[in-house]
Design a protein around this nucleic acid. Sequence first.
DNA 1: GCATAAGCGAGACGGTACGTCGCGTCTTGCC
DNA 2: GGCAAGACGCGACGTACCGTCTCGCTTATGC
Lengths: 188, 188, 188, 188
Amino acid sequence: MVGRGRPRDTEIEAKVLDAAMTEMRARGYDGLSVDRVAERAGVAKTTIYRRWPSKAELVMAMITELTSAVPFDPTGDPRRDLGEFVAGIAAALDAIPTTLVADLVAAAAREPRVGVGVRALWAHRHAAVSEAITQAQADGLMPAHADPRIIVDQLVGALYYRLLVTGDPIDPAYVRALVLSTLGPEQS
Amino acid sequence: MVGRGRPRDTEIEAKVLDAAMTEMRARGYDGLSVDRVAERAGVAKTTIYRRWPSKAELVMAMITELTSAVPFDPTGDPRRDLGEFVAGIAAALDAIPTTLVADLVAAAAREPRVGVGVRALWAHRHAAVSEAITQAQADGLMPAHADPRIIVDQLVGALYYRLLVTGDPIDPAYVRALVLSTLGPEQS
Amino acid sequence: MVGRGRPRDTEIEAKVLDAAMTEMRARGYDGLSVDRVAERAGVAKTTIYRRWPSKAELVMAMITELTSAVPFDPTGDPRRDLGEFVAGIAAALDAIPTTLVADLVAAAAREPRVGVGVRALWAHRHAAVSEAITQAQADGLMPAHADPRIIVDQLVGALYYRLLVTGDPIDPAYVRALVLSTLGPEQS
Amino acid sequence: MVGRGRPRDTEIEAKVLDAAMTEMRARGYDGLSVDRVAERAGVAKTTIYRRWPSKAELVMAMITELTSAVPFDPTGDPRRDLGEFVAGIAAALDAIPTTLVADLVAAAAREPRVGVGVRALWAHRHAAVSEAITQAQADGLMPAHADPRIIVDQLVGALYYRLLVTGDPIDPAYVRALVLSTLGPEQS
DNA sequence: GCATAAGCGAGACGGTACGTCGCGTCTTGCC
DNA sequence: GGCAAGACGCGACGTACCGTCTCGCTTATGC
């Protein structure tokens, strides 16, 4: 083999994702056009398609970058760990315009590839959280009657539901109350 | 005042909405084309645009018509009542293509009016459910430590979350487990 | 037989034709829309279609009214009669925007019905003029070698040609020279 | 400067213009649809609109390409030369659908640029013919009383007039008669 | 004097074409 | 090989007209 050709410009990823984010905020998923993203990023359309095979994929990449900012590092204290997990998600959702979240959810439902990506993302996180819950149940720190995956649904689902459907506020007090309600009172 | 012109054909609304529904089920939101809807409904494209100024608006109309109320008729047995409430919502969500629900959510976030409408719909239902829970708590049939509104968030939110985010199935077993997890085990 | 129904409003013809004229001046044949004409005339579209079965027919009516303003009343002096005939046409063409004439010619070529109408109009006039020329030839007032119909083509055609193709001016001097050239010098 | 992008496919112009010509002959101006032209040319509609901003513009391009010069090569025999000139124009007009000629005339009246172009085309031709006539008059081969430019108007104008206004046929016999009528009988 | 028949304004409707926009692919030439 | 530039095929969008239709109302006529 000979020369492997010109290496990819590593700054392009960020520029494009930034531009896509701006467009998404301004016009939503449907209004986001690859041509405009390219122009805003100062990049050729070809260059975008070389990295992401479709608009859906591009949006997916954007989401992944956004959401992966919520970590889950269990300390062993399940109450505290879950509390921080939920608070982290709440903070992340708060940092993004609601419209964007809604559009992404809609895009996930409409575009199979986006849906797959989003689900994979969550599946990964859920696994970690579920495992921690299972451990806590085994350690007798949490009631054993509940399926860990359902507990996650209840916690995260309540946040999404408030944000997207009822529009009620999500403040630290709510997060605390939610965790309390889900895990039950401290098992002294 | 004088004649108001030829009146609108009242059957057209239903025919078009039906056709749109069929198309939506078959090809999803993006695959839904106004031309095809018109053809299927046996109606001119112009006639559709006279009623709904854009494809989005048309889909919105379809959704809101579908989102008919899930009834809540408490019997006094909170466990059973909530179980049926959740099961009813699950059934309703199951009957509608996921895309529709996602689009409604997105539309609610984008269009203030839609948002107000959707929220009003839910607020009404929530009030009834919350009241029943409060009553059950007062009767000692349910643990008193939890805010009734949060319980509703957990129940309904979990459903939406599964449907829109994780894509995990929502079957009767899940509904039972969800209610059990939320209300805690039977107080003997 | 019983009642013959409400009689047609006789003012409508003029109002509509006027409105059509205005529209035609402003936007040409293609840009003329029946809806706009109706609105401008303060009349329902139906009312227009009751009188003229199509847009082409309407335009035809307009033309007829315009062009029928050029009379031909022979006095017996062929030179003078033809001179006045040509001058009259020149004056009529001068009173109408060139664009309009061009559009009408184009409409006549495009729309069979308009074409038929225009041709009928001219045929009538030509017959009168030709006859007068024939008479003059019989009386020895004009050279007999030329077909009268061709003489008319030469006279009128030159005017149209100048107006529509070369754009050269059509002034009284030109008209005189044209007649002179066509009829030859006075036969003493 | 850098790459100028994918070059335009040079064969497309001809393919589209050809297709347009065919459609125009078959269905006339109004019946010519850009969609059909695109399909016949095996080209996307967008590609057509990239080159010609509207249907009118496309037709114009077609016309101007067709209006190739009718040659005028005087032999010194004015009768014959003019006869051939007129016959050539008649043949050219006969080869093109009348609608095209009419549309060109209309476009020339409406669009200044088109007008200038058309007039320049004719001015050039007229100059040559007028000069030949002047020469013939000087040689005593033609009556001197007539302005050469008017003779041209009469000859060509009569053709246009027949074609566009009266619709009468333009056959060789007519051409002969027209020349005879315009130039007068042979000066033996 | 009252029914009948046509005229009229208003505007919905079926069609057909228009011109635009976006996606994803392609073809250049330069780096 | 990457990249900018931009042409291209495809397919949908929303708009503008045309000519027809259906309302409710008005206006003459003639029995």
